[in-house]
Design a protein around this nucleic acid. Structure first.
Length: 159
DNA sequence: TCGAAGATTCTA
DNA sequence: AGAATCTTCGAA
């Protein structure tokens, strides 16, 4: 299965109050300080996994949260995993996205560049507009406009 | 060791 | 609008 990422949010380390890596380096956010291109998967609210991609060089905390995507292939499988028949609800939220792609804790720290099971690749597309705005679902760092989405996509997160 | 908070989602 | 649900972190 594959999906086209349409919405992301950036989280940096020490300067970003909304980031997990803001205060201290802990076992959980450890991955954010490691080599770029890794996956940072984190379990939240007792029910949901959230998928991030580490972006900054080793030693500097930074990651990009994948908030929403547009299903491209393997849609049947995703519907099974998500238990819904509506394509638009398959991956239009960070927790839903991980459920649809079967991403869980075992992918934490996984290589997303050269990885086999989970990886990111360029679609080659260059004709789309990106809009930015305040991030969603957090209470700190709202003054930082680090949410980026593909303008006009019908697969953006619900909130 | 305990309590509180959290980058969410679904249901009533 | 509110609950479900559980891991993680920081304080005691």
């Amino acid at each position: 299965m594959a999906a086209r990422i349409v919405e992301t949010e950036a989280y940096t380390g020490s300067r970003d109050p909304g980031s997990h890596a803001y205060s201290n380096r802990t076992p959980r956010n450890e991955v954010m300080f490691e080599a770029p291109g890794r996956a940072y998967v984190y379990f939240c609210y007792g029910n949901h996994f959230l998928l991030n991609i580490v972006t900054e060089k080793e030693g500097t905390a930074g990651a990009v949260l994948i908030r929403a995507a547009e299903p491209v292939s393997g849609i049947k499988t995703m519907m099974k995993l998500r238990r819904t028949g509506e394509i638009k609800k398959l991956t239009n939220g960070p927790g839903k996205l991980t459920a649809a792609l079967a991403v869980d804790k075992k992918f934490n720290r996984a290589d997303m560049v050269g990885g086999m099971e989970l990886y990111v690749a360029s679609s080659g597309e260059k004709k789309f507009r990106v809009t930015k705005g305040p991030r969603i679902g957090i209470k700190k760092g709202l003054d930082l406009y680090r949410r980026f989405c593909v303008k006009g996509s019908g697969f953006l997160s619900a909130k």
